[in-house]
Design a protein around this nucleic acid. Sequence first.
DNA 1: AGGACGCCCTGTTCGC
DNA 2: TGCGAACAGGGCGTCC
Length: 269
Amino acid sequence: MDPMSVPIMPELPDVEVYKRYLDATTLHQRIDRVRVSVPELLDGTTPQALGRVLHARRIESSRRHGKYLFAETDRGAWLVLHFGMTGFLRYFQHGERAPQHACLEVRFANGFHLAYAAPRKLGRIALARDPCWFVRSTGLGPDALAVDRASFRRLARSRRGLKSWLTHQQTIAGIGNVYSDEILFQARLDPRRRVEALGVRELDRLYRSMRRVLTRTISTQADPSRVPRSFLLPHRGMGGRCPRCRGRLRREPIAGRSAWYCPRCQRGH
DNA sequence: AGGACGCCCTGTTCGC
DNA sequence: TGCGAACAGGGCGTCC
């Protein structure tokens, strides 16, 4: 079973699944060829430089921060991958066909390949000294699953709207449009409300909802078909109905994205 | 500071 | 049925 066969929006849970996929397939094997077919995705490096850094190296470990995946080589340099909205990984045997839209392809000495594919070319490939350095220089906020309740409250001193705040990677890293809808739905909060206007109980509800949604979707491999029917996600679409009150869901552009929510269950006051 | 908007990209879905 | 417009959205830049 190839867990990468379902197209998904690469937010924190999805990237966590990619990380586990990478760990389960590519670690400790010697890289003997690197091929870049979409050089526009390279940020701050070139196909030649990337090839030099990776050639004859092994990936020894990986890390994830928000929607970014980091792979450590045995010489210390880190490969940085961001999946945009359609990116994914595929590990395949020599002779099998590479996925369409493969932008970066690494061949290992054991005859297997790892492809990073991005049909819409909205991803990013970079090199970094280490993940901390990269996170700092990009200005990313703490990973959503590493934020404790106290930090969450501190970060919430913001005039932003809830939807905009949750998806702002410089505040908290890892949450995108789809999962922010789910988190707000389960916290029963109106996406248009301001963060700083929330009471302590509401803020704690939001915090618990964030953790519940992220950990739960990771535990089901971020597979959309395995998301409980009580979640908003399976109903997020034209004509969708609220799994809680059966009312019609509403779509509204908020923070430059289309937000789905239940106007009855997610009231603002 | 933060929101609105446009842009990048391309496969899919929609309406006429 | 066919075709073009609209849409999907992560991240960035610009403007207000």
